[in-house]
């Protein structure tokens, strides 16, 4: 299946793109997509403990399974206000 990955702020800078298309195996979770990203962009690894994630613009846990066409977002620590 195919998912769209959205990256923000420093994560976007590290990957060099705000959005990536990714192939994911059936049964893939947010976490497995993240681990694949870290392989491609090792600098992301230091965010392992501090990122939040969302699916289709709703906050979601890393163990949430994904479906074909989902938009997965990875969010570094926030700094609004």
């Amino acid at each position: 299946m195919r998912v769209t990955v959205r990256l923000f702020a420093r994560l976007r800078d590290i990957a060099g793109a705000p959005e990536l298309a990714r192939e994911a195996a059936p049964g893939a979770t947010i976490g497995s997509v993240w681990r694949q990203l870290v392989i491609d962009f090792p600098e992301l690894a230091r965010y392992e403990q501090s990122i939040s994630s969302a699916v289709n613009a709703d906050y979601a846990r890393m163990d949430q399974p994904l479906r074909d066409g989902d938009e997965v977002a990875f969010l570094p620590p926030v700094s609004g206000g």
């Binding site: 939040s52 906050y59 620590p77 609004g80």
Partner: peptide
């Protein structure tokens, strides 16, 4: 304003004299 700073998916990039940096505060967990 406290909750915005805790959980809103918003980021500020600070451009200062001599460089720039993404500000990273709280890990967002509603």
């Amino acid at each position: 304003i406290e909750r915005v700073k805790q959980i809103a998916p918003i980021w500020k990039r600070e451009f200062f004299e001599g460089g720039d940096v993404w500000i990273e505060g709280a890990t967002a967990d509603p």
